[in-house]
Simulated assay, not measured.
Amino acid sequence: MTTIEDVAQFMRTESLLLVTAESCTAGLIAATLADISGAGKLLDCAFVVYSPEAKKRCLSVSQETLERYNLTSEEVAREMAQGALGGSRANVAVANTGVTDDTDDAIPAGTQCFAWAFEMGGSAAAPRMFSETRRFSGDRTAIREASAQYALARIPYYFSRLA
């Protein structure tokens, strides 16, 4: 597995500046990257948007998307990533939304939806977007930590698919 140090070096090499849009991880993705020396050149800002209202207000997630797909969905994660890019100077966004416990009968505990958005062609070009859903096991803390690590580790993977 890719270490966070490897991800940071990759981001430096590719001149990537990150913004996060975090629900379930509540800032842990940004905090994990911030543990790396020199993180100030890699991380622009982080949006922690736990409630549906915050997702709408801060990141322009639409009510229609929330109603149609549920809070724990790739569609919501994609809108979160798009909104985060629009509210920052970053050229890559990582978004996460999900559940860590049995709060929703229809969604298993540990389900996490992610989106990665890359803005590589200037403001006129639409960001390239990738998303996926994963399920992690363990207690609440273990799920959040695994989610944060996974979100960062996938940056090089999806960046390589831009060409």
Rank of each mutant, 00 (worst) to 15 (best):
L18S: 05
A95T: 06
R57G: 00
A146G: 15
S23E: 07
K56L: 11
I29A: 05
C24Y: 03
A117I: 01
S131A: 15
F130T: 09
A31K: 12
Q63S: 13
A77V: 07
G27C: 04
N96S: 15
T141F: 12
V76R: 04
R68A: 13
A21I: 02
Y150N: 12
N96G: 08
L33V: 10
R144K: 15
M129F: 08
R161A: 00
S73A: 04
R57Y: 03
S15V: 02
S23M: 07
F159L: 03
L28T: 03
A146Q: 15
R135P: 04
T141D: 14
T65S: 14
C58D: 14
T141C: 11
A90S: 12
A95V: 04
L71Y: 00
A90L: 04
A30G: 14
L71V: 07
S88Q: 08
S37K: 14
E22C: 13
M120P: 01
A124K: 13
Y69M: 00
V76A: 05
L42K: 06
A148P: 08
T32E: 12
D101F: 13
G121N: 09
D139C: 09
T103F: 11
A84V: 03
A142P: 09
Q63F: 02
R144T: 05
W116M: 09
A146V: 11
G122N: 05
E64A: 11
G83K: 12
R128G: 00
T65Y: 08
D44L: 01
G110Q: 00
A93C: 07
A151M: 02
T65W: 08
D6W: 00
Y50H: 10
M129Y: 09
A117L: 03
L33M: 14
A125L: 07
V19C: 08
T20W: 00
T103R: 11
V92N: 06
T3S: 13
N91W: 14
Y157H: 14
V94P: 10
I4D: 09
S147M: 02
N96L: 03
A46V: 02
E119N: 12
A26D: 14
A84M: 10
A163F: 12
S23H: 04
V48G: 02
Y50D: 07
W116L: 08
I155W: 01
P156I: 04
A54D: 13
P156S: 05
C113I: 00
A84Q: 08
G86L: 07
I143E: 01
R78V: 11
A34L: 09
L71G: 05
L162N: 03
A84T: 02
Y157N: 04
A93H: 02
A109I: 04
C113H: 02
Y158L: 10
S137L: 06
P127Y: 09
G27A: 06
A21W: 00
L66E: 01
F47H: 12
M129V: 15
D104M: 05
A39W: 01
